[in-house]
Design a protein around this nucleic acid. Structure first.
Lengths: 184, 184
DNA sequence: TCGTGTCGTTCGATTTGACGAACGTTGGCG
DNA sequence: CGCCAACGTTCGTCAAATCGAACGACACGA
């Protein structure tokens, strides 16, 4: 499972990698995480055995989930090509989805553009267990979320919710959005 | 993301839950993990702030992945309102990125909202080999693509291009877009 | 009724992680 | 050039996590 993985070096590498991804200095990250520079310096040097709270605050400050800091990076190289011509999948006149990028069976992530018109809401039944839907509203107003827990969203708003329970989309005005479907 | 979640109580609950699932005593687990009984006792009581190595050895002894001990049960609904969320530092004032969803190490796909102002274009150096960037323009006009092959995009337009070669973003007017970064 | 084993908790001693202050270095600017 | 600010590192100090040992509670047999 995670047998021979000494998390010491992994954490050191992950910290430096993620920090450079965000593009901030060591001192700045320490400030945001509420830590001493020295602590972070030693961590990135591979020395030390940080406490959970310390690592957690770094994860929050970097905006990455905790697991990314402790688990070794996946080294396998897999190329997934962008979808060619967008295809249209429509089942109701008020709802249209355009498939932008379809992941392979090994890396399942699909990217859609949704176009919705007010009127008949779309009720989606549960998908495969473990799937997650990510929605960013580009224009208009949309009521979305798991059945019974819908939330109203406007341009720029983001919502993520489990796709393996019944859920729901309704446009309050002509709208469109970007949807990332994540399958377990 | 994982915002105000103090992992202290989560860990305590997870430890007791997983230990009872395996069906061993506290003393036995401490023995297998190479820890003092007292340490484990306090951890399950919710007191303490364990080090990474301590928690890791418990994960190994319990036969569960590390993340199961630190992350709360499972995903629920998460909303990030426009303008909220962790903002990545802009190396130029014309560029801002907000991280919406960060993939785990096993499914590396990150979702961002980009905000761009006209002016200085953003030149990005190559990322990890095999990475792909997917961009959907929500509003405005953006010139984007690999260096030398930029394409002008308007609202609703989609482009995918390799992220492991130098590439380029420029807003022709105030714009924002949804970016999915896909790491190999 | 002892004696023995294991359970989980509590109590000092010690190792060690985190802090704050200093250091040398680098880059920008008058 | 000097000055200043920020960077990342190193060092001494302090608080805290971990340890080892002892504790009371419970169960099982002799």
């Amino acid at each position: 499972m995670q047998q021979p993985a000494p998390p010491l070096a992994t954490i050191a590498a992950a910290l430096r990698r993620e920090r450079e991804r965000v593009g901030i200095s060591l001192a700045e990250l320490a400030r945001r995480a509420g830590l001493a520079k020295s602590t972070l310096s030693q961590l990135e040097a591979g020395a030390g055995n940080p406490s959970i709270e310390t690592l957690w605050s770094l994860g929050v400050a970097l905006g990455v989930p905790f697991s990314r800091l402790v688990e070794p990076p996946t080294s396998q190289v897999r190329v997934i090509r962008a979808g060619q011509g967008p295809r249209l999948l429509a089942d109701k006149s008020t709802y249209a989805a355009t498939l932008l990028a379809a992941g392979s069976t090994h890396a399942r992530r699909d990217l859609y553009v949704l176009e919705l018109e007010p009127g008949q809401p779309r009720e989606a039944e549960a998908h495969i267990p473990g799937s997650v839907e990510h929605l960013v509203v580009a224009a208009g107003r949309i009521l979305a979320g798991p059945a019974g827990g819908q939330i109203e969203l406007g341009p720029g708003d983001y919502i993520a919710f489990p796709g393996d329970v019944p859920h729901y989309y309704e446009a309050l005005e002509p709208s469109w959005a970007v949807l990332m479907m994540e399958h377990a």
